[in-house]
Nucleic acid binder design. Structure first.
Lengths: 234, 234
DNA sequence: CTATATATTTATCAATCGATAAATAATCGT
DNA sequence: ACGATTATTTATCGATTGATAAATATATAG
């Protein structure tokens, strides 16, 4: 399996007679545009490190890319830089700024907004790559996860609480800052969603129900629960 | 850092004059009983692999033990065997058979039993070592976690459901097997507890409340929720 | 006190890993 | 068609890693 070239000696000399500009690459695409090659490497690195962790070997990654290992270093100065790129690709690149507007769009009923947000968010993070990379990162160094969760709180969760406050005619978080119990309940909901991914992609325990239904139920329970811990009306 | 002997040249010749049988080891204890040495190695390995993951190097582990690296191989034939011992120590050794009796002890009110079980269980698994080792194991190979969760379901969770059925006068699980929705709710409670550990020991996010209070609240919510999904009375 | 047993260390191997430099080959402009 | 550019490969280095064998030191028996 590891020795295999993987290229059946079949298509090597089929089309080689004339040169009718065979734009479609017959064999492995060679000599790609640097930007294209870099993108391919980054994409495969996401998949690779999600599977093997950051201790995965550059040689094995190169093999999956059908390139040689030193070529990686033409596009990324070090393995660490490649990993940093993976972080960017997954944890930054997959965040949708539209979520921040969605949560605060008061032309839409609150529960609809939250359900939609958590559904879309779940669709992004409940993937093999996202969940495992996040866990690998957390076990390796503390910085990245803390940074991400801080961002998540600031961009999404604080807004969620602000909107719930508004819905139930409570003081804004600018007047009465988010309380511990409020943010704890938001973390709890996030935890429930995140754990769906851990079950699937770390424990290999398939989910019994579809994610959307689970999210809907969790959001409903959440809204019922957090209402009773909001600060008093003005 | 790697060249350092680590032993400040300070205590080397302090006590060496006469030999009044210094039973208390002055320097590092040397030449321990094999059983004692093995236990010490296993204990430190738990802590070490929990911190660094299973890719942690045997030389670094040996340094923490103040022994040389080849000595590890006198007590464990391979690194893999040492890791297997760590598994046994933590995931098997810390399981308390008394829990199985506790859950089924009908001389005690159900809620009391469940609260006590989940409190004790949480006390065991919500440690730096348990949580991180379980996560490292899950990311590495799928076998161990699946085995553990299967054991958890058989020895504890099936009993929990059986007792809840009995409490509310529903058919036994021997007559009406555990339903998907029932076991899902039990997993959900377990997930909530487990995530407390992930937050603390993987994300370094301290908990805002004490674990016991959280457990009590979760168990109460759980009992209220699962009641409505039990199979109908006979 | 001496000899035997063995816990521990020293020395070292072979494989692996990230990384670099030089050689090669494919593409493009002229 | 040809030379220049550069994407890619080949070859290799130095450090690290799990593991083994031989040497050493410590405890115990007789």
């Amino acid at each position: 399996m590891t020795m295999e070239n993987g290229t059946p000696a079949e298509e090597a000399d089929v089309k080689k007679s004339i040169g009718p500009r065979p734009r479609t690459p017959i064999r492995d695409q060679q000599r790609l545009d640097p930007s294209e090659r870099e993108a391919i490497i980054a994409r495969e690195a996401v998949s690779f490190f999600a599977e093997h962790g950051f201790e995965g070997q550059t040689r094995e990654l190169a093999k999956r890319l059908r390139i040689t290992q030193p070529l990686l270093y033409r596009y990324f100065p070090s393995k660490e830089a490649l990993i940093e790129r993976v972080y960017q690709e997954v944890f930054v690149g997959r965040w949708k700024p539209s979520w921040e507007k969605l949560i605060a769009d008061r032309s839409v009923p609150l529960k609809t907004r939250l359900t939609q947000f958590y559904r879309e968010y779940a669709e992004v993070i409940l993937t093999y790559e996202w969940i495992r990379l996040f866990m690998f990162a957390g076990l390796k160094d503390l910085g990245l996860n803390a940074r991400y969760l801080k961002m998540l709180r600031e961009r999404a969760f604080e807004r969620v609480i602000e909107e719930i406050r508004f819905e139930y005619r409570r003081p804004s978080t600018r007047e009465v800052p988010t309380t511990v119990i409020e943010i704890e309940m938001v973390w709890g909901l996030h935890a429930a969603i995140f754990y769906l991914g851990v079950r699937q992609f770390i424990y290999s325990m398939p989910l019994e129900a579809d994610v959307s239904s689970i999210i809907d139920a969790k959001v409903t329970t959440f809204l019922g629960g957090i209402r009773s811990v909001l600060p008093a009306k003005l």
